[in-house]
Amino acid sequence: MQWTNLNEQTVYENRWFRVNLADVVLPDGKHLDHFLIRLRAVAAATVVNEANEVLLLWRHRFITDSWGWELAAGVVEDGEDIAVAAAREMEEETGWRPEGLRPLMTVEPANGLIDARHHFYWCCEAGYTGHPADDFESSRRAWVPLKLVPDMIARGEIPAANMAAALLMLHHMRLG
């Protein structure tokens, strides 16, 4: 059963996103007004060291008033290569420059409302370049054993579903 988007109007727009109102035709022919958010792609990256520890950020998200572990991530700028954006975000937020980034997975975290795709990358080597330029992004950075990831997710220490999915994939690839 496919829904068809006949038309969209922008209701609100800023540098980060657009809120649109779509005229959608349902399979039975009825029309539905549906709000959606158009976002730029998000790129995220991390490194897994020889001890199978993953570099994570401890962050507070004011919107949900929650703390949790995350990978370095941010929006892909217009015209920017996704892998380049992932590497940039990792270095800006952690102070570690990744070497040889590889695609891990792409997810659509809320595809019933938002069109953004989150692209995850990882590597086995990174060079420390100094204190992170964007240290305001997190309270701390830490090397966390991948073997702890499933229990951390179960305890709610990795609350973001996209981050949990990427870390579970890394856990499976490295330890599974």
Rank of each mutant, 00 (worst) to 15 (best):
E108M: 03
I82W: 07
V54L: 03
G130C: 00
G79A: 11
P159F: 15
D115T: 08
C124A: 13
E137F: 08
V19A: 02
S139W: 15
H119L: 06
L113C: 00
A166E: 00
T129H: 10
G74H: 09
W58P: 03
C123A: 14
L6G: 07
A133H: 05
G68L: 13
N52Q: 11
R61W: 15
M90Y: 04
R18I: 02
T106H: 02
G100V: 02
A72L: 09
L168P: 01
D65P: 01
A22F: 04
A44S: 02
T4V: 08
V149I: 15
A154H: 10
L104Q: 00
A87H: 07
V149Q: 00
P145F: 08
W67C: 11
L175W: 10
N5S: 12
H119K: 02
E93I: 05
W58H: 12
E77W: 12
E89N: 03
A43K: 02
G156P: 13
V11Y: 01
P159V: 05
V24H: 02
E8C: 08
A133E: 12
L71I: 08
S138K: 09
R174I: 05
A165G: 11
N52R: 10
L170G: 01
G127E: 11
E92A: 08
V84D: 10
N14Q: 04
D28Q: 04
E137L: 09
D115V: 06
H131E: 15
A110Y: 12
C124G: 12
V144S: 07
K30V: 10
V19K: 08
N7D: 15
A87C: 06
E77F: 12
R15K: 14
G112R: 04
I37N: 09
L101N: 00
